[in-house]
Simulated assay, not measured.
Amino acid sequence: MEELPIEPQGILWQTDFITAEHEARLVQIFRTKLVWPDVRPGGRISLHYGYTFDYKTFGVDPDIPFKPFPDWLQPLIPPTTYEGRPPEQVCLQYYPPGAGIPPHVDTHSIYDQLYSLSLGAPVMMQFRRGDDRSEVDLAPRSLMKMSGDSRLHWTHGIKKRKTDTLSDGSVRLREDRWSITYRWLRAGGECECGDAKLCDTAQRRNGVEREYRWKTYDADNVGLLPLPVDTKDSGAESQAVAAEP
């Protein structure tokens, strides 16, 4: 994998991780063989393998047993030469045209490395830190790894919209897209990055606890993201402060 020469640093990229023929077979499986949960029309939907992602704590759900990787997923696991072992949590997501995911960081204390394989139509992903913005065009069959700054100090998300405007000014319609996210659990459950805005370990050490609730970040992005709650003053009512989107 090669690092993209952009900000944020730490985005590693591999073009054509699988062939177009392999991708077509996978899309056929996704469309006809898998049982997807019922959700509101137009929203993204997810299936989990290995440990199940917990949308209440943004960690893993301890009450759901480890789900073995199915046969179709086995060839898609990044080589053990990349991280030394297979991932512990894998999430398959379907994005219908117009669907997105709010800007977020994957929980620092629970998850270490983060990879994503894009399938189907391309889409623009936006990385954000304060007023800084950077977009990456997620091409079909590309494998992306987030490490360093891109993983820990910038949020990432996909805007909820029907089209993407490309760098040359052209407008591209969105179509059906799938992604496979691979997560490795962090040994020891502690992150040492020290980012008080985005790191749950740093927040906890500073006396900040997190609540999880629905919050609107942008007019076109609504999602479940953590809100740190300052609990240093136990005699006063805690005040929720929105995490950096």
Rank of each mutant, 00 (worst) to 15 (best):
P228E: 07
G207C: 09
Y82M: 11
L47Y: 09
P140R: 15
I101G: 08
K145F: 00
I77G: 04
F53P: 02
V241F: 01
W36P: 12
F30R: 10
V208Y: 00
T216Y: 00
P87A: 14
T80H: 11
H156F: 09
L185S: 03
F66T: 00
G43Y: 12
R205P: 03
G42W: 10
L224M: 11
A196I: 14
P87C: 13
F69H: 13
P70M: 05
E2Y: 06
D149Q: 13
Q93L: 14
T163C: 03
E175A: 11
E135I: 02
P62A: 10
Q9D: 09
K145N: 14
E211D: 12
Q28Y: 05
W184L: 07
T201C: 02
W184C: 03
P97F: 05
L92E: 06
A240I: 12
A99L: 12
A196N: 03
L117M: 11
E88K: 10
V171K: 01
D112M: 06
M1F: 03
L73V: 07
W13M: 06
T155G: 01
G130I: 14
D16I: 06
H48K: 05
A219R: 03
G50Q: 14
K56C: 10
Q89K: 12
S147W: 00
S167H: 02
Q89W: 06
D233E: 14
R44M: 08
S142T: 13
G100S: 12
P65K: 06
S142D: 13
T15N: 11
V39N: 14
E83Y: 08
H153W: 13
Q9H: 14
K159S: 15
M144I: 15
G43E: 13
T19F: 06
I6T: 11
R204N: 09
T231D: 02
S179K: 05
L26P: 06
A243M: 15
R213H: 03
E135D: 13
I18K: 05
Y95C: 05
A139R: 10
R174N: 06
Q9N: 07
Y95Q: 07
Q113L: 04
A236Q: 15
S150H: 00
H48I: 08
V35I: 07
V171E: 01
P62L: 10
F58R: 08
D137L: 14
G100L: 08
R44C: 03
G100Y: 06
A99F: 11
E88N: 12
A243L: 10
K232H: 07
A139H: 02
H156V: 11
Y217Q: 02
Y182T: 01
F69E: 08
Y217D: 02
T231M: 08
D132R: 11
I101W: 08
P140C: 13
I180L: 06
D164M: 00
N206E: 01
F53H: 14
M146I: 03
A24N: 10
D132T: 05
V90W: 07
F17C: 04
Q239P: 01
D71S: 07
P62G: 09
A242H: 04
T32S: 09
P122Q: 04
V123G: 05
S167W: 02
Q113Y: 08
G157D: 03
G42D: 08
G207E: 01
T216F: 01
N221Y: 02
M125G: 00
